[in-house]
Design a protein around this nucleic acid. Sequence first.
DNA 1: GATTTGATGTGAAACAAATCACAAAACACG
DNA 2: CGTGTTTTGTGATTTGTTTCACATCAAATC
Lengths: 227, 227
Amino acid sequence: MKQITKHVIKNSLKRIFLYRASLVRLKMMGVEKVFSYTLANETGVTSDQVRKDFSEYNIKGNKRGGYDINDLLEKMENIFHLNKDHNIVLIGMGNMGLALSKYSKFVQHNMNVVATFDIDPFKQKMRSGIPVYSMSRLKEIIDRFRVKVAIIAVPEISAQEVADELIRHGIMGIVNFAPVLLKVPPDVIINNVNLCDELESVIYYVHKLMKVDGLKNIELLYRDMKY
Amino acid sequence: MKQITKHVIKNSLKRIFLYRASLVRLKMMGVEKVFSYTLANETGVTSDQVRKDFSEYNIKGNKRGGYDINDLLEKMENIFHLNKDHNIVLIGMGNMGLALSKYSKFVQHNMNVVATFDIDPFKQKMRSGIPVYSMSRLKEIIDRFRVKVAIIAVPEISAQEVADELIRHGIMGIVNFAPVLLKVPPDVIINNVNLCDELESVIYYVHKLMKVDGLKNIELLYRDMKY
DNA sequence: GATTTGATGTGAAACAAATCACAAAACACG
DNA sequence: CGTGTTTTGTGATTTGTTTCACATCAAATC
Ligand SMILES: NC(=O)c1ccc[n+]([C@@H]2O[C@H](COP(=O)([O-])OP(=O)(O)OC[C@H]3O[C@@H](n4cnc5c(N)ncnc54)[C@H](O)[C@@H]3O)[C@@H](O)[C@H]2O)c1
Ligand SMILES: NC(=O)c1ccc[n+]([C@@H]2O[C@H](COP(=O)([O-])OP(=O)(O)OC[C@H]3O[C@@H](n4cnc5c(N)ncnc54)[C@H](O)[C@@H]3O)[C@@H](O)[C@H]2O)c1
């Protein structure tokens, strides 16, 4: 029943968010219309890929006319639920939790950290505007704010028990910063963020790059590396 | 010359790091030998995949005998440069930078944040053991500690200029927390970490899951989702 | 030492993702 | 109104990844 389920976010979905960020920026600059190659240039992919990605998520533009930015943003908001407010809880108010609780971009993206939780009584006081509660109030808050998604920023050793409790109280999706694979029922979405691995991957590719002598052989590297 | 190059870390490489974490844990528990299915169980993949991944990176075990953990870890350390020390600089000592500078796992993985940098003079004093310098000392430190990899944790607006400066001083790989695509020469490795996108992806999949009524249709979801 | 057993390692097959190529649509302009 | 141009949207093709299948080897058993 409970099992390790490491959900890997599809690259096409990641690219969609990239397109969206570009669109928001272009809109701010007063641009009203884009073509697939506009977005392609902005995001470093091909125009084919932009159109294929849109096709995958059923996003349509105007033949010859390209895409109206407002229209496109609205479509994306509907498909990816970006316009609705999402209440989130954050467990673990240590270094990482504190940084995340102060991150203003979440709110800008309609994601509200409605409450944070910590077992340490010392941390259970207002900090940076967002209340820090004891774990005993978890269920109450999850119910009250209809929270479906949580962030885990507790030590490795506690992550599994915290996940279990979250899921028991109805949480369906977790972004997990602890470097452990959580065992959860198959209908719970887990997204692991492991910063050591992100760094180590870069180090590995950099070493590889250094071995490739001279720029003429750079394609040998790229052949073995998604980019 | 300079271009957007969003390096996507290969999933096979990410899985390798997963295997390694398992191996370290198993070793601590006193285990000395593993089979491909041991690692498979520990990491939620298939044993075929474990062997195929090892094959990709030229990691070999013993026919019938499985893999000796120490041997395997040593091989991985050599291939992925995990045994050597890696000096890293961190730019931007705001909320995120501070959390990262205090993260003990980096050191445990032989990655030393030798110095951090910030333009804000108020932040340029010892904090949490790691010195905070002004940007004017960047070149000096990068040269002295032969730094090749950097973490960018400055605001969106400054990320590109910081990247330019880092690269000018010889940095070859960057983990970038700012939600912008950096324009860099093709021989610089960029790994973007975008936490808003990670959360929004989870929200999207959770919504999808909620639409699927009842567990019997869960495979419909999984068909459209890597996991 | 022959035979059975159990695991690796890797081609082959199946599946998935990215790229290519082009028909279809929309607009521009004579 | 018709012809040329431009861009979308999507089948077809290619490329990449995962799964399958099994030959190969090494140890255990007889
Ligand atoms: N600090 C970073 O930059 C960083 C980076 C990547 C990953 N992480 C990971 O994030 C997690 C947190 O890291 P950190 O540096 O903030 O650690 P930390 O020790 O500073 O904070 C952990 C917090 O969790 C609380 N906690 C412990 N057990 C709990 C429980 N059962 N229920 C609720 N709260 C509990 C602690 O009281 C503490 O406040 C760790 O798993 C770490 O590996 C941290
Ligand atoms: N806080 C988070 O949880 C979080 C999460 C994900 C991503 N991020 C991203 O990480 C980056 C930093 O976030 P933060 O919350 O720490 O912001 P912050 O404003 O708290 O910190 C930014 C720091 O960078 C310094 N800085 C600004 N310009 C600089 C320059 N040119 N050179 C050197 N230092 C400079 C500032 O003085 C400040 O100390 C942002 O791009 C943000 O979007 C933050």
